[in-house]
């Protein structure tokens, strides 16, 4: 390096002091000097190897740290060349500059985000489901029932005999399920929800009073409904949806950074809402599980078919709200499976 290198002007700070002194940085072969530009007095000097140029992000001021703790700050970006900044940190800044080639980065980002979405999320969800202890599942069940009882459900009006009949159907189905978790059946009045049933991740199945009053004397229908709900439990659909929502949120905040107020809430809570529309696949899968289980335990899938026909006639085509596949679609699948068995 020659003695004619241009000097760089900026500000100097004593070690640990907030006082800003105007200063000049000069580089010679053996030393880097920091001097006061007014009187030319030497502030400090260090050997080039002991002087550190910080890693800046963006085009803001650059800091230079001397061995004895002095700091020099400048807006002059010639400092990068003068201090022979290593290639990797220059390269990173180079690529970050807003140019047309960033379009390629955007494309690559979207592509890899899509890959992460379709590969990493399901993988993480699978691991999380596998790691969830049974104790946690039954806790989820208890808490869910409590909050549902508080908000939408009412106590069941069914007689003890009626309840016992349905539980007998469940017991028969359980004989053919290769799952080491126990299922429990509970009854609730569900105002406004008609003949309905729901499954919780820990194996609790809730059926509405109306389902039992309408179909309680027909074990094939009840068996169909229960087998379907057992499918949700065994295949862990509810848990998967929950974890999916949490995983997506965690990945977004980890990779994209702080997203700011409101959006943060929408991402976390909205994910749970969005996961409702994901259950289409799960419904069809639970139906397939049900048909298999019904055959194994000596029930006919004809009960489930009859139920869907009923629903189709009373409700019509309601698939506009995409949470559930249409009854016709489900009916078709069950018929195909039944035909296949013959």
């Amino acid at each position: 390096m020659s003695a004619h290198d241009p000097s760089i002007s900026g500000w100097a700070f004593r070690p640990g002091s907030s006082e800003r002194i105007s200063a000049r940085l000069d580089v010679s072969a053996d030393w880097i000097f920091l001097t006061d530009p007014d009187d030319g007095l030497l502030l400090t000097k260090s050997a080039p190897l002991d002087v550190r140029l910080d890693q800046a992000a963006g085009a803001g001021p650059r800091n230079v740290y001397f061995a004895d703790g002095w700091m020099f700050q400048t807006e002059d970006h010639q400092i990068s060349i003068l201090m022979q900044e290593p290639l990797p940190s220059r390269l990173l800044r180079h690529f970050e500059i807003f140019r047309l080639r960033l379009a390629a980065f955007i494309f690559l980002s979207l592509l890899s985000a899509f890959a992460a979405w379709s590969l990493a999320v399901p993988a993480l969800v699978t691991v999380a489901v596998w790691l969830t202890p049974h104790a946690a599942l039954s806790q989820i069940d208890k808490a869910s029932i409590k909050s549902l009882d508080l908000t939408v459900f009412e106590e069941s009006d069914l007689s003890a005999d009626k309840q016992k009949d349905q539980k007998r159907v469940l017991k028969q189905l359980m004989l053919s399920v290769d799952a080491n978790r126990p299922f429990t059946l509970i009854f609730r009045e569900m105002p406004g929800m008609g003949a309905n049933a729901a499954a919780l991740p820990g194996g609790t199945i809730i059926v509405s009073d109306e389902l039992v009053t309408r179909y309680g004397d027909d074990p094939t229908v009840i068996a169909g409904v229960l087998a379907h709900e057992m499918g949700h439990v065994v295949e862990q659909h509810g848990l998967k949806q929950l974890y999916r929502a949490l995983t997506v949120y965690a990945l977004i905040t980890l990779v994209a950074g702080d997203v700011g107020p409101i959006l943060e809430n929408v991402l976390l809570e909205g994910q749970t809402l969005a996961s409702l529309s994901y259950s289409r696949k799960h419904e069809l899968s639970a139906d397939r599980f049900a048909v298999d289980l019904l055959y194994k335990s000596g029930f006919s899938p004809e009960g489930l078919q009859r139920l869907f026909k009923d629903v189709e006639e009373t409700d019509g085509e309601n698939s506009w709200f995409a949470t559930h596949p249409s009854s016709a679609e489900r009916l078709k699948q069950i018929k195909e499976m039944a035909d296949h068995r013959k």
Partner: peptide
Amino acid sequence: QITSTANEALFANP
């Protein structure tokens, strides 16, 4: 009414 997560209704009342 406030919904609870992770429950699976057999039929969704739209």
